[in-house]
Every structure is written in structure tokens, then in C-alpha cells.
Write a protein that binds this DNA or RNA. Structure first.
Lengths: 118, 118
DNA sequence: CAGAATCCAACCGGATACTG
DNA sequence: CAGTATCCGGTTGGATTCTG
């Protein structure tokens, strides 16, 4: 079994062991599912967003929460973290091309939710 | 705020408060996302499946787990529970037309997972 | 601004044993 | 067969405070 070690933008390594679920639905859910992850990705589709802006746009998610999910998304390669050299520091998060490939799925989920009145 | 009270097949009431998230992605995820929920739905697409069969097919999910998720899916109207009058008792779970409407989303998730090698 | 650190209650989910 | 009951360690996530 080969673990996937990812080096995040802050230099720390995270060990994301590959999801061994036989069901592709389940594997996909582990990446896109869960609280906030899909929404975060969705909110980045029109361009990079700053950390605090993102937190506010999600309305109801704590900073801690958003930060955790962002790290997971970054480790999975769906999102990119960029530090802007300003004072005070600004950080923006951008969706990667891989992340963008997931938007089709999310868009259908959005459509489903809306047409079904969820 | 109006809570949605559902009466399950065992007669017990469950109070599923409506998801108030402004983001449709998030609302959809609360219904389809989370561990095993998508997979369960997916495994019912070709016809009703018995409880123990389902548990085995998911491989790795405990009975307790599957049962909980099934109750949630039933409360949300995606799945129907049918008791077959046999000895010993048999129970099968079938996907509803509403549940079937979600299969398109799940199928795209499956395709995404597979093409992206997830 | 963008987090990190800490505390803590609530929930989750596995294991096991039991039931009609 | 299809659950329920109980125990229990681990994780989650909110609130709050602190920092470069």
C-alpha cells in the first residue's frame, strides 16, 4: 500500500492515504462530499477568493472549519493557496484545473437541489 | 421555521428540520453526501435489495451504519422500506422515483471519479 | 488579515452481544 | 433475517483567545 504524501504550501507534509473503497461513488464523495467542501469549490469558480471573504460567503462556517477544508482540498490538488505579499498578509485561494473538472458534478448537484426544491 | 415530520415505516416519527443553507450545493450534499449515502442509493438502482445483501455489497459498512443511513434516506423520501411477510422476516429497500432523480448526479460523480483516477 | 492554540461538549462509528 | 442495545474511544466542530 502506497501512501500519498503531499507537501502543502506551508511546507508541512500531509499523508493522505488513498481511498480504497471499491465503489467510485464512495471514493468521489470522500473528496467532494462532507460539510462545506463542495460549496467552497463552487465559490471559487469565478476566480480566486480571499480567506475571510470565503468564510463570510459561506455564512455559518467557522474560520477553523473553512481552513481545515481548504487544506484538504489543497492536499487533494483541487485548490491552490497563494500568499500575496502585502501588509497585512493576504491569502487567496484559487481553483485548479483539476478542481475545475469537478465543477460539472457540483453544477448538476446544484440543479438537482433546485429543481427538487431541496 | 417549519420542521418536517416524517413517519417511517416502523411508525416512528423523525423530525428532519429543513436545511436552511443558502447554497444549493450544500443543501444537496446534506441529502446525498456523507459516508455511504450515495453508495447505498447507487446499489439500489437495479432493483430492491435486502438489508443484509446491501450491507455485504457495501463491504466495510457495519449494519448499524447502513441502518442509520437507510433511515435517513427513507425519511428524506429517497428510499422505500418494504417488509416481506416471510419466515424469518425479510426486508427489502427500494429506490423511489425521487431517489431515482438523484442517480444522474451520482452517475456523474462516478464518472468523474473514474476518469480522474480517484 | 489569516490563521494557530486551546478547551470542551456532542456526535460518530466500530465491536459485541442480544432479540423477535 | 433484520435489526436493537450498550459500551466506548476517537473525532468533530463551535467558541474563544492569541499572534505575526
Amino acid at each position: 500500500m502506497k501512501a500519498v504524501v503531499t507537501v502543502a504550501s506551508d511546507g508541512r507534509k500531509s499523508v493522505a492515504e488513498p481511498c480504497l473503497e471499491p465503489c467510485p461513488i464512495e471514493r468521489g464523495m470522500r473528496v467532494l462530499g462532507g460539510k462545506w467542501k463542495g460549496s467552497i469549490l463552487w465559490h471559487l469558480k469565478d476566480g480566486p477568493v480571499r480567506f475571510n471573504d470565503l468564510t463570510r460567503q459561506l455564512g455559518g462556517a467557522s474560520k477553523k472549519m473553512v481552513n481545515q477544508r481548504l487544506k484538504e482540498l489543497e492536499a487533494a490538488g483541487l485548490v491552490e493557496r497563494r500568499v500575496l505579499s502585502t501588509r497585512p498578509i493576504a491569502v487567496e485561494y484559487a481553483i485548479t484545473s483539476f478542481g475545475r473538472s469537478a465543477l460539472a458534478v457540483l453544477d448538476q448537484l446544484r440543479e438537482w437541489s433546485e429543481t427538487q426544491g431541496i
